[in-house]
Design a protein around this nucleic acid. Structure first.
Length: 139
DNA sequence: GCCAACGTTGGC
DNA sequence: GCCAACGTTGGC
């Protein structure tokens, strides 16, 4: 299984919004970036991901699960864009902030640190464990 | 609110 | 196919 990170502006789509969708989940639509789309195409049902709030909060706040593999993004007619469906699995006991992630040399290679604008990105197995530990949350 | 970084678009 | 212009994102 692979791990991912989904970034969202909480004003637009927050962890609370995601939680409210329950087990039926929601499309991760609106991505208009080829790299991010390609990562979504690589996702498998059951893969886990971090839910990250950008802007004011800048923290990993929860864990989500992929519940449908890549399919056309219903928010556009443009056939180039696909998306997956995800559901909220559980919140982080303690949100892990970007500052904490940047402060940990073991996480310096994360795209979150090196390419902060990439909205969907892979997370290594090692980084996954480190961040779950920082958040006092089981993987 | 500002600014830097980056990706995309469009003209040539 | 290249490159300049532009828009958007996200951290500070």
């Amino acid at each position: 299984m692979q791990h991912w990170l989904f970034k969202s502006e909480p004003d637009t789509w927050s962890w609370q919004d995601q939680l409210a969708k329950g087990d039926s989940g929601e499309e991760w639509d609106g991505v208009r970036n080829y790299q991010a789309r390609n990562f979504m195409r690589a996702m498998k049902t059951g893969d886990l991901g971090f839910f990250y709030h950008s802007q004011s909060e800048k923290a990993v706040v929860g864990i989500v699960q992929v519940i449908a593999e890549a399919h056309p993004d219903s928010s556009t007619q443009d056939p180039r864009w696909d998306c997956v469906d995800i559901k909220a699995l559980r919140p982080f006991e303690t949100p892990v902030t970007l500052a904490q992630i940047k402060a940990d040399p073991r996480l310096a290679e994360m795209p979150l640190v090196k390419s902060p604008r990439l909205s969907v990105q892979p997370v290594s197995a090692q980084a996954w464990q480190i961040i779950c530990a920082l958040g006092n949350t089981m993987a």
